[in-house]
Design a protein around this nucleic acid. Structure first.
Lengths: 129, 129
DNA sequence: GTTACTGCAAAGCTTTTGCATCCCT
DNA sequence: AGGGATGCAAAAGCTTTGCAGTAAC
């Protein structure tokens, strides 16, 4: 939690509440989810602060922005390389840890400098089935 | 092009122009891209028609909705199983054809019925580098 | 003739931004 | 004290929707 201080991030009470909510969280919350949660402790919380903080974390490499859910961004505090399984019905996202050794065939790279990859599995979760 | 008629899709001139633009298109256009292109032929084209047609195609399995680009949906008329490489800078998307044999480890499925997967590679394209 | 599509405008959601005030360091 | 953060409101993107007129079947 305190590790961000040294990156120049100002640790306000609101930010600590956001960090606290995100720490170890595997629910892949949306900005709205973060807002609703932190609003309980800080009724004056605004989306500006939520987005500001999420972006501050992301730019420091402390948060991943997932584009797996159409319509809204989802955030993942686990920045280790891993993959995701999403429910097509309720949009629940669960982590998948595995090493798939996927790589773009050389002749298909089109000059791209490939930086990383992410496997997205989709299906229907237990509750929706 | 005519194959959609038998699915109950009404082939209006506007739809034929959209189908014509999408056929064989590997640029993964956004709704805006489709709109701008078809507007050349039909100046009164509206987003309602674009979205209506894209959804009609998608629901019939003739189009994929990609959620790979934060902020807007991208569409892919190639419904064969394949993967994508996206430029983090300009959001260009290119196809990657390969069989990666990825699957969710049984103990991580959490009761999900897994339907499919998609590998997303990211990097910087030649033009942006 | 039916049924479904078109086009315009309005509304809905998510995200971004301007700005005055406030507070962490 | 200074620089950055907060919070409110407004605005900006993208997508959806209502509805009257219209065209495909």
């Amino acid at each position: 939690m305190e590790k961000y201080r040294e990156t120049g991030l100002k640790l306000t009470p609101q930010r600590l509440a956001i960090l606290d909510f995100l720490d170890g969280n595997t629910s892949h919350p949306s900005a709205e989810d973060v807002y609703q949660e932190v609003k309980k402790k800080f009724p004056t919380m605004s989306f500006a602060t939520v987005y500001n903080t999420l972006e501050a974390l992301r730019s420091r490499g402390g948060l991943l922005e997932l584009t797996i859910d159409p319509g809204r961004k989802r955030y993942d505090p686990n920045t280790e390389h891993h993959h995701h399984l999403i429910c097509l019905n309720c949009k629940k996202i669960v982590d998948v840890h595995a090493d798939f050794k996927t790589s773009v065939p050389e002749e298909q790279k089109k000059g791209f400098q490939v930086i990383g990859n992410h496997v997205e599995f989709y299906g229907i979760c237990l509750e929706c089935n």
